[in-house]
Design a protein around this nucleic acid. Structure first.
Length: 424
RNA sequence: GGAGAGAUGGCAGAGUGGUCGAAUGCGGCGGUCUUGAAAACCGUUGUACCGCGAGGUACCGGGGGUUCGAAUCCCUCUCUCUCCGCCA
């Protein structure tokens, strides 16, 4: 959520910047400014009426105590009109406030100046492509065939137990999952992130805090009886650790990492791109989250990108780094870098990580603030997060790229975590 | 699932209709003392909104009501805790 005061002070800037996200904000912004002016006027009037009311009430109290009941009752008579006015002011005020809030949550975050103009995926800026794309042997196959051949992942069994998009990992397939999770968490801990094991279901307030609610409800599984949502990413519970808090500036940045299963309804996504592990309703991911000082957040974004890059490098996967264009950057993000690894058997790039700076957009909803030494007024912190990493497509790429006629080779760094060096 | 208790400032915890944005203690910050520290003592210490400012308004879990006046009374919702049952 953008800051109301900021919009008030910089309406043209907001409209201009949002063009980069292909969002025409002119109408919303001007409506907000209009309504806000009315709102302020109403508040001034209401406050004045309330001040008068408070004064009279105090006087009445004093008169009663002095035993001047007659004067007190006379004073009472004066209050009814003021009371009526206050009621009207408050009703109007709430109505306007609600409208302003409805409009405010419709505005996406302002994109960073480095975000390229563009409509969709294909307009993303490729910053670098790293690593050799391996030459596979003649009989190389995509990961879903490898998964079946070595009995690593059973998609049909998942369909039986739950439904499509809920694979069953087994044997070395399951062990590989566990190894990757442990490897990613260990690397996070080494990089100074505190490990968190968060709840997998969250309440409405948390969903709102990170921006999934109210608009993206359909993307989350909803346990309606208890009104709880299954998390689409650990970002939600972890970032909400910092909801409604005022932090000490000297303790910034806060760094957390968390493994969680992630649940996504992703309604309406079918077709050839969703085969195997490419797109699932339940998957595993290790997330990194930071709460940062506004002046440091972009340096921290770079640091997080470097961390993710290190993970992919250690796994020996060919990858590329993208800067998302305005059309592809998410609603809440100011700047997002994506990592894609190359799936040699499928001959395509698969997104495995998204690292974003949300600046104060989430913080504003979360009421996540910090206080600078000696400064009385708290200010909004910046939040950042990134996948480090999402497992399914990493697994897909590992299986495909490392396949040999003898079996699938496990990357060196993972062997201590898997306990085996080959799947055969 | 059954029964009961409760929700007040960073924390603990008073406050049952007016002088309560709220005692007191702890914590935090500043100071005195000290070579330094501790102790002791003194002072200070919520957030948001409106206003150029003086200042004003709101907030004692959320919403509604009674009243000139509500942390305090009434209704309602949510959440938390305790005991019993069930269970990893």
């Amino acid at each position: 959520m953008l800051n109301l005061k900021f919009i008030q002070d910089n309406p043209d800037l907001v409209v201009e910047k949002l063009k980069r996200k292909n969002f025409d904000a002119s109408e919303i912004v001007s409506t907000i400014i209009n309504l806000n002016a009315q709102k302020n006027k109403l508040q001034a009037e209401a406050d004045q009426a309330k001040a008068e009311m408070n004064k009279i009430s105090k006087e009445i109290g004093m008169l009663f105590r002095e035993g001047k009941a007659e004067e007190a009752n006379a004073a009472k008579a004066r209050t009814s009109e003021i009371k009526e006015n206050i009621k009207n002011f408050d009703t109007d005020f709430s109505a306007i406030e609600e409208k302003v809030n409805d409009l405010l949550v419709q505005l996406p975050n302002l994109p960073h100046d480095s975000v390229p103009f563009g409509k969709a995926e294909e307009d993303n800026e490729i910053l670098k492509t790293v690593g050799e794309i391996p030459t596979l042997h003649e009989n190389a196959v995509p990961h879903w065939e490898l998964a079946a051949k070595y009995n690593l992942i059973d998609f049909e069994l998942g369909v039986k137990i739950t439904g499509a998009g809920f694979p069953v990992y087994r044997g070395k397939g399951a062990q590989l999952q566990r190894a990757l999770i442990n490897f990613f968490l260990a690397e996070g801990t080494l990089a100074g992130y505190e490990e968190i094991q968060p709840p997998l279901l969250v309440n409405e307030a948390s969903g709102f805090g990170t921006g999934q609610l109210p608009d993206k409800e359909g993307q989350m599984y909803h346990a309606t009886e208890d009104n709880l949502y299954l998390i689409p990413t650990a970002e939600v519970p972890v970032t909400n650790i910092y909801r409604d808090v005022i932090l000490d500036a000297k303790n910034l940045p806060y760094k957390n990492t968390a493994y969680s299963a992630c649940f996504r309804r992703e309604a309406g996504s079918y077709g050839k791109d969703v085969r195997g592990l490419n797109r699932l309703h339940q998957f595993d991911k290790v997330e990194i989250v930071q709460v940062a000082h506004p002046e440091k957040s972009y340096a921290i974004l770079d640091e997080m990108v470097a961390h993710v890059e290190g993970l992919i490098k250690k796994l020996g996967l060919p990858y590329r780094l993208l800067r998302l264009c305005g059309g592809d950057v998410s609603f809440a993000s100011a700047l997002t870098f994506d990592f894609e690894v190359y799936s040699t058997a499928q001959e395509k790039w698969l997104e495995v990580s998204s690292v974003s700076n949300f600046e104060s957009f989430q913080a504003n909803r979360l009421k996540l603030r910090f206080r600078e030494e000696g400064v009385k007024k708290p200010q909004l912190a910046h939040t950042l997060n990134g996948s480090a990493l999402a497992l399914p497509r990493i697994v897909a790429a590992l299986l495909e790229n490392n396949q040999t006629p003898e079996g699938i080779k496990i990357p060196e760094v993972l062997i201590p975590f898997t306990g085996f060096d080959m799947i055969n």
